[in-house]
Amino acid sequence: MLRYALFRIALIAPLLIGLSMLVFVIGRVLPGDPAGLAAGPYATMEQREAIAAEYGLDQPIPVQYWRYITGVLEGDFGRSLMTRRPVAGDLAGYLPATLELVFFSLFLAILIGIPLGLIAGIRRNSATDMTIAAGTLSAMSMPQFFLGLVLQLIFGMMLSWLPLSGRLPFIVSPPPGVTGFYTIDSLIAGDLTAFRYSLLHLILPALTMALAPIATIARIMRSSTIEVLQQDYVQTERALGLPSSLILFKYVSKNAASATLTLIGLYVGWLLGSTVLVEKVFDWPGIGLYATNAILNQDFNPVIAVTLAIGVVFILANLVVDMLYGVLNPKVSNKQ
């Protein structure tokens, strides 16, 4: 198991080199004039060239890439053309916010999707099943930005139950940074007020992102539950008198959940991508919002850094998922 994990982690390096080359080259060969944009509309030719020289944009692309990649190895992701700040610092601030959102919505998706699918599978073709099917179908077909606006309108404006946007209200100071996740950091600091507020701020954007995964996970879980219910061992468990609640929620659910695991791994990537829209709607200070602004300004260092960060998170998340297969299905862990 440990050897397998190390092998998978070692595989990350070539993947990242490929990914960085791709994004770097595409960023540089795209038409446009980043140095000109950064210098502003009234800059002279000399000022423009000075900025290009400062950022190394006057060098051939292989040289630029080499400089960039050696910098990355030292933790230097270059500087942003627009903010003139080091990208690494920006990333350290924005990435945890996004990850908190992504993992919280993933948590919601699993917490809601798995039981929904299990119940639908157990009560196959009943009114409950039909209701869940109708609900999941409409959830899947709802565009996220629209859903986010509707949720803001209902829960933020009309009912005033939940905050509209941001991570914390201005009057609450963020907890001292340990993980960068406000919910966890505030718990570590023992600051329950900050914990309550950061959780309240998470709910709407996380729900917006989680709704489609909830629906898909529930549908997959439903079909695998139906399949597991027909297995011989379920009949044996019944024949030996185990109560159905124990059979369903312990013995059936564990077998059925392994089918949804692949899906959950893939959703990490999907959720990371969808932060771009959702963070815009909810004004969430994460890398989605950061990347959007950078793309609009042809500011490529942040774009490359965000892409690499998302790549690493995605690969690691799928590594965790692969490890979990071994937990849910003991046959797999033996073969590794």
Binding site: Q231, D232, Y233, Q235, T236, E237, A239, L240, Y251, K254, N255, S258, L328, N329, P330, K331
Partner: peptide, 13 residues
């Protein structure tokens, strides 16, 4: 009760 196929009557997980 005891059933026919021992390979499928124990829960694999």
């Amino acid at each position: 009760m005891i059933f026919q196929d021992p390979t499928t009557n124990l829960n694999p997980a």
